[in-house]
Amino acid sequence: MKTIKIFDPALCCPTGVCGPNVDPELTRVASAIFILEKKGFPISRYNLANDPAAFVEHKEVNQVLHEKGPEALPLVLVDGKVEKAGSYPSNEEFASWLGVEVKELTPDKPRNTLL
């Protein structure tokens, strides 16, 4: 099973989906990760503000940051290899890497039961 590690820029909280101006892209990524984790896929996220040691310990991440600077974040490792830098993976990329259907990464919308 493939492992995914996401190295986030400095965010206000571990997921980055807090505060008055929530970025819809962070919400989409957090939702996809939640769904994938429920399916048993190993996905880790590291926030530069909360876990700077992880950025130093992973030589691939450290190298990219030295070459490209913080603009390279977010950075995604799949099985230890840099697969994406500078933006979050699309649902299609998550699906391709992990062998799932894209539609599985879209949460069910609540149904209105009021008549």
Rank of each mutant, 00 (worst) to 15 (best):
P89N: 09
K109L: 06
E101K: 05
K68F: 11
P70L: 15
S44N: 13
Y88H: 14
V56R: 12
E71R: 13
N62V: 05
A54S: 06
N47S: 02
P110H: 05
L75H: 07
F55G: 00
E67A: 15
K103A: 15
D79E: 15
S44Y: 11
D79W: 13
Y46N: 00
S90W: 08
G69T: 13
P110E: 08
S31T: 09
P74E: 09
K39C: 01
V61R: 01
E37W: 00
K59H: 12
K81H: 07
N112T: 11
N62H: 14
T106F: 14
D108P: 12
Y46A: 02
H66K: 15
E83Q: 15
T106C: 11
V102H: 08
A53D: 09
P74Y: 08
P110M: 10
A53K: 14
E71Y: 10
K59A: 09
P70N: 12
S90M: 08
N62A: 11
N50R: 14
S31W: 08
S44I: 08
T106M: 11
E92I: 12
V64W: 00
K38F: 01
I35M: 05
P42C: 02
A85R: 04
R45S: 07
E67F: 11
T106Y: 12
A32I: 00
P74V: 11
T113D: 10
P110V: 10
I35N: 00
D51Q: 06
E101F: 03
I33V: 10
E92K: 14
G69K: 11
S44Q: 15
E57V: 07
A54W: 01
G69L: 11
K109V: 04
V56M: 11
A32G: 00
V64G: 00
G80M: 14
V82I: 15
F41V: 01
V100T: 09
E83L: 13
T106S: 09
R45I: 04
A49F: 06
E60P: 01
E101H: 06
V82T: 08
